[in-house]
Amino acid sequence: MSLLDVTGLSVVTDSGRALVSDLSFTVEQGGRLGLIGESGSGKSLTALAVMGLLPPGLTASGSVVLDAPGLGRTEMVGAAESRLRPLRGRGAGVVFQEPLTALDPLMRVGRQIAEPLRRHRGLRGAELRRAVAAAIDRVQLPEPDRIARAFPHEISGGQRQRVALAMALAAEPALLIADEPTTALDVTVQAEVLGLLGELIAEKDMALLFVSHDLAVVSGVTDELVVLKDGRAVESGRTADLLHAPRQPYTRSLVESARTFENALERITR
């Protein structure tokens, strides 16, 4: 049985405009699926709908079933807040695009990582402090004690994204949703964070739902792809197949523009 089963998911605004239409995909236990599309294609909304956290004014319909080991099968669309809360963080965790805004500016980093540990694993006191240090260490940040005491503005962008990753992974979710996690970072840091993400996923046999507009980034970390355009899936399949033989014109244009960019880079560096 699959870990995440999305069937006929639609997201509609109060005024009746459809932002996501009839979207279906599945993520297997330990699977790595990419959602790719331009900004405004509904990919971030899909990620939020999976968590049951759509902003006010948006309504989801269809079915999102999360079947995390030890947490039971849950229909996330229309479920009560009290049913969803235990699943958030433990069933699925999220890393957002902009680490500066995704961390509370007035809370020390250590406390922000401690929150899910306290909530989902019931840790307190010295045990909690050790777990925070371990979580910081796991995302390969230096000097865990100093980082834990720092405010978000006192550490670098790459470090902030590692902290956000540590927060999302703290409760050891079965599914990690990464919403453009490297877009706000510069290219070298981007590669490091992606590498780390891949390692952590493999280590815990976690599933990954990776949302991005960047084909090069997505193809490096996923096995399967769903291509979104204007809230609809235009094509889906194994990542390698889609890259080598895109069937739809839209997918072809995405692959071609990524190729053109790469070729241009190569021409410059040569």
Binding site: R85, P86, E115, A171
Partner: peptide
């Protein structure tokens, strides 16, 4: 975003209010 981030990790509303 940090409110959404807190909620994705399962933080309850009362805790979001007092903590964030």
């Amino acid at each position: 975003d940090y409110i959404t981030a807190a909620r994705t990790s399962g933080t309850s509303w009362p805790r979001v209010i007092t903590g964030h």
